[in-house]
Amino acid sequence: MPTVTSLESQFSFFAFGAFFAACLFVYCGEEIYMPFMFLAAAAESAESSAEEIIRGPVDALGYSGLGVLIVFAVLLVLMVFITVMSKLVGLGGKKAPAAPAAAPAKAPAAPASPAAKQPAEKAEDGAMYVTLGGKRHAVTVEEKLPRFSVTVNGKTHAVDVEECEKEEAEQ
């Protein structure tokens, strides 16, 4: 299966938005153009009550459809803006920095127990390391409390703080 790139997927959503806009245009051009008429009527006659605007289920359906389209349109505009802003700022599409591939050669001696978990320590170069089963691994930690992810050698693991706290309390 071919891989879909970020640009392609973004394009597909822009195309989806364009399709929506086209549908709206055709919708308005056809005989069923009531939603915009309702809006215009609502704007023109402020004194007319809301009950007069909705004259039956067909009106309600028209308003519902228009409401969905407007929500999509506004969020689509925001989505396009965010995408463009990210590109302009120059960071759009960049992934979070990956963990360093290998542990440094001068790793300290490993603890005796094979599966002992050690708290992450900060090395001189600023990277984080964790010693697992006697081997020292470079890690990146992304905090998303109460859960956060730890990337060890390119593999991301979810850590649940609440669960850890429960386990600690039980111990």
């Binding site: 409401g67 969905v68 999509f72 689509l76 925001l78 989505m79 995408t83």
Partner: peptide, 16 residues
């Protein structure tokens, strides 16, 4: 940013 469309789709309940 694409996740914004999901926020829009979930408003279906309002209009239903």
């Amino acid at each position: 940013a694409k996740s914004m469309l999901l926020g829009a789709a979930a408003q279906l309940g309002v209009y239903v």
